[in-house]
Design a protein around this nucleic acid. Structure first.
Lengths: 165, 165
DNA sequence: CAGTATATAAGATCGAGTCTCGTTATTGTT
DNA sequence: AACAATAACGAGACTCGATCTTATATACTG
């Protein structure tokens, strides 16, 4: 079995370690406003997805979102993807590639609660991190490169403490 | 259509811009040696893949490899993936996630011709880059993180000059 | 409250990647 | 050089994340 394409044992909402997001209240409100401003109607499926994303500390996959909502309100897979795409276009959500063969999504923080990801190759757990020095290096670099850089993504891979033990 | 899952218009071997890799002679030899040392036999399919990878400046997808070889020697898709996996295990090839819904592979340079990637969201072109300051920031960061970091990957996304024009 | 457009659900479909298994080819041995 | 033994390979079925299609339900507008 290929090490990176393995089935990652993620228990839906615990895929990304770390404290459950606390002060996301603003994000939910901001999201609702942005959607209304964009001329969108309200729907229960989308509201459920928004609420779930608002309570996450880190990125979820579409399937994890579908599973997590199954108990409270069945949301079709197509809807999950459609909603995530809308939210991404409005800059409310961002895609995260962790090298696990599926895309993860997370809400875009109000200010710059900007972060990147640590991925354990053993158990598949995903953890957020951020670093000032790294961001400085990136932004200075972005000036000297033959591309108008609009986003960047950094993934550190290795073994978490549990797996290394 | 989702912007990142779009079908990227890559013409097989030109997927990764930049001069065709020049001094790859050593890599090919090194690869052959490593494979022999690992007790592997020789096969035509693998030799074809090795030669192709040796002439690339940057990362290719498995499908691109299959297509590129189609004219000279038909190599089964399963073989391409199996060969790439072997090479990855031996540290001769590395996987690259560019956020384009498929994995790319490239040879691992002899010394530290270590590099990362710029991806144009418009045309899908992938370009290599490297930066000392960035590497320093990463390695100092790797010490302070709750993970034994073994690899890292950085992708800058934006618009290339042609697409921005 | 009727009309209309958006939101959603269900399921077909797509495609990258994986798996199985029968065939071919390399290599060490005689 | 013929011969096993076994690794390398090819063809195609299969998996599963993601997308597309279409019919229905629901939210706004007048």
């Amino acid at each position: 079995m290929s090490p990176t394409a393995r089935t990652v044992p993620t228990t839906s909402t615990t895929a990304c370690a770390g404290r459950r997001a606390a002060g996301g209240r603003d994000w939910l409100e901001r999201a609702e406003e942005a959607l209304t401003a964009a001329g969108r109607r309200r729907g229960e499926a989308r509201r459920a997805v928004l609420e779930l994303l608002n309570n996450q500390a880190c990125a979820l996959t579409a399937i994890e979102i579908e599973d997590a909502l199954r108990t409270q309100r069945r949301v079709s897979r197509a809807s999950v993807y459609r909603i995530l795409e809308e939210l991404e276009e409005l800059g409310l959500v961002q895609r995260v590639e962790t090298g696990q063969a599926m895309v993860r999504y997370e809400r875009v923080a109000d200010q710059h609660e900007h972060h990147h990801h640590l991925v354990c190759g053993g158990c598949g757990v995903v953890m957020p991190f951020s670093d000032e020095g790294l961001e400085r290096a990136i932004s200075s670099l972005s000036e000297r490169v033959p591309l108008t850089v609009s986003e960047h993504e950094i993934v550190l891979r290795g073994e978490c403490r549990d797996c290394a033990a």
